[in-house]
Design a protein around this nucleic acid. Structure first.
Length: 803
DNA sequence: GTTTAGGCAATTTTT
DNA sequence: TTGCCTAAAC
């Protein structure tokens, strides 16, 4: 309707010459082109997996610029640095010039941190405020819990932190919290009546330390815009066009900010997919999508339903799977790609066997399909699952990279080093100060506790006390001396901030504190690693310093803020943001981390009940549905080949766990699967098939009763091997056979004796020559023709007795 | 104040 | 199984 050309005020005179020679819309499909060219008024784009979402976003920005919109006035928010970076690069390629550099684009957190930095004074924070990561936040909470004399078994930092975070994500201040009867009674019933008080105290301490946690970056931005109309007005006017990526993952705070910023122009475009919402546990709420329609009645909605990424089996599987979820925005994802292969299911006896099978499969695929290491991804539910795969990949000399887990900046030596930098930049930073004090020889927990106690009592920062150690209660003579020297050192280093750049300062700290030397002298393999890590950090600082000189920020950045800017940047960086010198590696990551990525060959592993779906998600329908969406994200990463695997046993928490296959496997539709060729176990009565049956009986029934829609007819007359077509004859027994398989000796093998002839899935026919062990650990030695003798655990074996 | 040993609990996903 | 915390010894 309003296909008007944007108001003149948005235009700027600089042309983007390359753009004017190409018709951006020609390279897009119909819906994409409409989404890209609807630049006036609110727009919502529902983008299925592989539907060209990033393409639409980048082309839309390019289109805006082509239409004369000043890049300075375009704000684009993403969830990850990686997404922001990728978009910027792609726009740069499109525009051929440097226009993209002027875009205001980044993650919610980094963009808001930047705004807060400029406006910090208004809300009483220092420009160089610290950003606390989750460890810092928990550590601070721990101190507070201790000071208030609360039971730390009851008030666990992680719990308290989660509760506070939830409040913040909903823009509930400590005052609101304490005044909310529902919240208060919830806490009381949970036996944690002081939760609100903790929240209040926590915020006070953060303020005193000149620090914000991740959530504060959102909350404080909101407060800033809410309390200072002139600031709000400034940014509202500045940003004429807003774009929000991964809208389904925004929380209330993020949405509220965005809505405020867009209030004048209402040129806001959100892109998302409700089926890929996987961060509800972090406060993301689907109601943002629903509210969006309500808040903007003249909203234009576009649905990108054509999948350009995956083959039909994968697309059908994804559709089938997600139809098990209740409420969702209606859409039908389709593809016109050629047929491809069915999804192959691996069944393993243990996590090591699972890893071995997959490593070997990668090895074989590389040869069969002439593809590279980087074309493979192994996706798992939890980081701890990576270990077995590392071993097996190493065994086959397959290079790999693990994403996530302990990040570079979370390593002790890095945190230690960075803590010194933090203290220089913001001497009130309590967590950094605690860390640095702890590193100082002669100062221990007792002294630190005394400092904290006195500071807390006087309601000042630790630094105020360290500067005047004579005021610290019960301070010992030795500690007094040490603290005095310490404060001198900090002040002299601080004085040099004005004359030296970040790298020079960092180097000086490394030398003066003796950190570099002591790490250098440690010649254990870990010690060498630590030394190298610190060196890497230093060179990171060096290249940052150089970069800064090349392209000065448009905002005020004085030399002494150089270091501060660096610190703020790294506090919002994750491991996946780091480039790899050799990208040709098999990639291992959690499903969460894989969002937005795609790979020719994908393994989704550990598909067992209680692991994926996670044990902790089985309590409510909502959580289970989120797990299902998570699995949806996982399988839709695959372009050509998708593999699902599960292990019957897994060592968890030091003991062996027996697992059933995940319900998700069969939820993708058996027609799309290529099942393992295992015998059909059918001796366990249904009531014993699941452990913990009672707790989610209702859900299970619900699940079984749900009538599946007739699956979109796949041309299943081809491709299915005999086992598969056999499977299709009756669904239920196969379903049960997956579930049933567990690491007990199947009863039809109980009577196995020396002399029996058996058939093994892999080794073929063989003769039993020895049976040893008892119970579930029966071990049979079997001589296979052409293979030789093998020792086989009956509980894992895929054996069939033939005589 | 620092180090070591031993007991104990807890294990999801992340900007 | 690991890693965290506490208690005791150095």
């Amino acid at each position: 309707m309003c296909k008007t050309i944007p108001k003149d005020s948005f235009r700027h005179s600089d042309k983007a010459p390359y753009l004017y020679h190409m018709d951006i819309l020609k390279e897009l499909n119909n819906v994409q082109a409409q989404a890209v060219s609807s630049i006036d008024g609110p727009v919502m784009i529902i983008a299925g997996p592989g539907s060209g979402k990033t393409r639409v976003l980048t082309y839309r920005i390019a289109y805006l610029i082509q239409q004369g919109i000043d890049p300075f006035r375009i704000l684009a928010l993403t969830f990850t640095n990686k997404a922001a970076k990728e978009m910027r690069e792609r726009i740069q390629t499109l525009l051929g010039g440097s226009e993209a550099r002027n875009l205001y684009m980044g993650t919610f957190h980094s963009v808001f941190a930047r705004i807060l930095r400029m406006e910090a004074a208004k809300i009483g924070y220092p420009t160089n405020f610290a950003i606390y990561d989750t460890d810092d936040a928990k550590s601070l909470l721990k101190s507070i819990i201790k000071e208030l004399g609360l039971n730390d078994k009851l008030y666990k930092p992680s719990n308290v932190s989660y509760r506070i975070s939830s409040a913040k994500n909903s823009l509930i201040s400590p005052q609101d919290y304490l005044a909310d009867p529902d919240l208060m009674s919830e806490d009381e019933q949970a036996g944690r009546p002081y939760m609100g008080k903790l929240y209040e105290k926590y915020q006070q301490r953060l303020f005193l330390a000149g620090a914000m946690d991740f959530d504060d970056l959102l909350v404080k931005t909101y407060e800033l815009l809410d309390n200072f109309p002139e600031v709000l007005y400034k940014y509202q006017n500045r940003f004429s066009h807003l774009m929000i990526d991964e809208f389904q993952d925004t929380n209330f705070a993020q949405y509220s900010i965005v809505k405020k910023l867009a209030a004048i122009h209402e040129n806001i475009c959100v892109v998302g997919d409700d089926a890929q919402s996987i961060y509800a546990f972090r406060g993301a709420t689907i109601s943002n999508i629903l509210n969006f329609e309500k808040n903007y009645p003249d909203l234009k909605i576009f649905k990108l339903e054509q999948n350009y990424r995956s083959t039909p089996y994968i697309v059908h599987a994804a559709n089938e799977l997600i139809s098990n979820n209740k409420g969702q925005i209606k859409k039908e994802i389709w593809t016109d790609k050629k047929e491809g292969e069915k999804i192959k299911v691996f069944r393993a006896g243990s996590e090591n066997e699972e890893a071995r099978m997959i490593a070997e499969s990668i090895f074989e695929q590389k040869i069969t399909y002439h593809i590279q290491n980087q074309d493979f991804a192994i996706l798992y539910r939890t980081n701890s699952q990576s270990r077995a795969f590392e071993e097996q990949l190493r065994r086959l000399n397959l290079p790999y990279r693990i994403y996530g887990g302990l990040s570079f900046y979370q390593r002790k030596e890095i945190k230690d080093f960075v803590a010194y930098l933090r203290v220089l930049v913001n001497e009130n930073d309590e967590e950094a100060m605690k860390r640095v004090l702890g590193l100082t020889k002669g100062v221990g927990q007792t002294t630190i506790n005394k400092i904290i106690a006195t500071a807390s009592e006087k309601n000042v920062s630790l630094w105020e006390m360290i500067k005047k150690p004579e005021l610290i209660q019960e301070i010992t003579k030795g500690a007094y001396r040490l603290l005095f020297n310490f404060s001198m050192m900090v002040q002299s280093l601080q004085a040099q901030l004005h004359t030296k750049n970040a790298y020079e300062i960092a180097e000086m700290i490394g030398r003066q504190t003796g950190m570099l030397e002591s790490l250098f002298l440690d010649k254990t393999s870990e010690g060498i690693g630590r030394y190298e890590n610190v060196q890497e950090l230093l060179s990171g600082i060096k290249s940052y310093t150089l970069e800064e000189k090349e392209e000065p920020e448009e905002d005020e950045v004085s030399p002494e803020n150089d270091l501060a800017a660096y610190l703020q940047q790294i506090s919002l960086l994750t491991d996946s943001d780091k480039e790899d010198e050799n990208p040709n590696k098999v990639k291992l990551m959690t499903v969460h981390a894989s969002k937005g990525l795609e790979f020719p060959s994908v393994f989704v592993v550990g598909l067992e009940e209680n692991l994926f779906p996670s044990m902790l998600s089985l309590n409510t329908r909502e959580e289970l549905e989120e797990e299902r969406r998570l699995f949806y994200v996982a399988i839709t990463r695959a372009q050509d080949r998708l593999y699902l695997s599960y292990a019957n046993t897994r060592v968890r928490f030091g003991s062996i766990q027996y697992n059933e296959a995940s319900r998700f496997i069969e939820e993708v539709g058996l027609d799309n699967l290529n099942m393992p060729r295992n015998r059909v176990f059918s001796n366990t009565p249904p009531s014993q098939q699941r452990s913990g049956n009672t707790s989610y009986n209702g859900m299970q029934n619900n699940y079984y009763e749900k009538k599946k829609e007739p699956s979109p007819s796949t041309n299943s007359n081809s491709g299915g091997d005999q086992f598969n077509s056999m499977n299709l004859k009756n669904k239920k027994p196969i379903a049960q056979s997956i579930r049933n398989s567990s690491a007990v000796v199947p009863s039809d093998l109980k009577g196995l004796k020396v002399g029996n002839m058996v058939v093994h899935e892999k080794f073929g026919q063989g003769k039993v020559t020895l049976v040893e062990g008892g119970g579930d650990n029966v071990l049979a030695t079997i001589f296979f023709e052409g293979v030789g003798a093998k020792k086989i655990m009956l509980r894992f074996a895929k054996l069939q007795i033939i005589s």
